[in-house]
Write a protein that binds this DNA or RNA. Structure first.
Lengths: 169, 169
DNA sequence: CCGCACTATCTCGATATCGAGAGATAAGCT
DNA sequence: AGCTTATCTCTCGATATCGAGATAGTGCGG
């Protein structure tokens, strides 16, 4: 079995024999796999009438539980976009009837973004489709290996998750 | 040990107990890890006066070996951007003196993009810095686990690498 | 209870990307 | 050879994002 990264590593070894390119074996695979996943997500969501960014926002609201309502600030921190981007996204989601804006009764500066019934149906459908697709990707991999892979990835991710919650205001 | 994805999976389980969200344990971690890596790459490359997209293009040329020369078509397929984007990138890299365009002697429609000495130095320096950073990410992980992780990732990636070389012209 | 630093959201100009299409050349077919 | 289809690169208009700044409201310390 062989993938793009094997070729990549070989090429670097030939051109830069002075360097230890071992880390690419893990981290380039992570990046490339993520790129493939992004493309596939786009395809899956398009079939459900959503863009990936729409799913990101709606899913955050959906996961928060009833009444499916969060501030723009929480949404932008959760999705790692800037405030200008989030304003624009909420505008478009509201125009599409998937969310509505309400003034925040507890803070007159703020608003709350609430999922509409239609928004909830759309994100639920898209999630189901996403999981179906992801199952096919993981397809042949036995449950024991999945757990081991998940654990190894967690050990890389958890140190990165902690520091610098990175306000993007 | 715990990461963002553990919280994500718990939240979905609470809201959608009807779904099997196991696949997220692996694939959401891949996506999130890739996002962290992107941010870190940006930081590392900025210190070497390169943008991530500049590194992507220059590295492809560097890896191809002397005379460090490829067509725009090969570059756009390697970096998964559209032709309009690649034209724009080559324009800016040429303006920065990191590449030069030459007519392709074998095909009068085409051009060849060649790395300049300065471009080569910059990409070599950036690669060294990138690998240093990646070593710190992988830091504590023993070599045996790295190999296992790489192998598990390869088994997910290799089926995706084959199909649909996806011309983006 | 007043001032001041902080926070929340929105506005707006700049920029990188996409994607459709044009112009030129190449390669295959009859 | 002549014709058609494919390929290569570039052009250009539309769009989503960023990031700095504006506006309004909050709440702490004096």
């Amino acid at each position: 079995m062989r993938d793009e990264v094997d070729g990549l590593v070989e090429a670097w070894r030939a051109e830069r024999p002075d360097l230890d390119v071992e880390p690419l074996q893990v981290l380039s695979r992570v990046s490339r796999l993520a790129r493939h996943l992004d493309r596939a997500r786009r395809t899956v969501f398009t079939e459900h009438g959503l863009e990936p960014w729409e799913f990101d926002v709606l899913a955050e609201l959906r996961r928060s539980g009833p009444p499916y309502e969060l501030s723009p600030g929480r949404l932008l921190r959760a999705t790692l976009v800037t405030s200008g981007t989030m304003t624009n996204r909420i505008d478009r989601l509201a125009a599409a009837g998937l969310v509505r804006r309400f003034p925040d009764p507890a803070d007159k500066r703020g608003v709350l973004v609430r999922l509409t019934d239609e928004g909830r149906e759309r994100v639920d459908g898209a999630l189901t489709a996403l999981l179906d697709y992801e199952k096919t990707i993981l397809g042949a991999m036995p449950a024991s290996e999945r757990r081991r892979l998940a654990a190894l990835l967690r050990s890389l991710l958890s140190p990165l998750d902690e520091p610098d919650p990175r306000q993007r205001t």
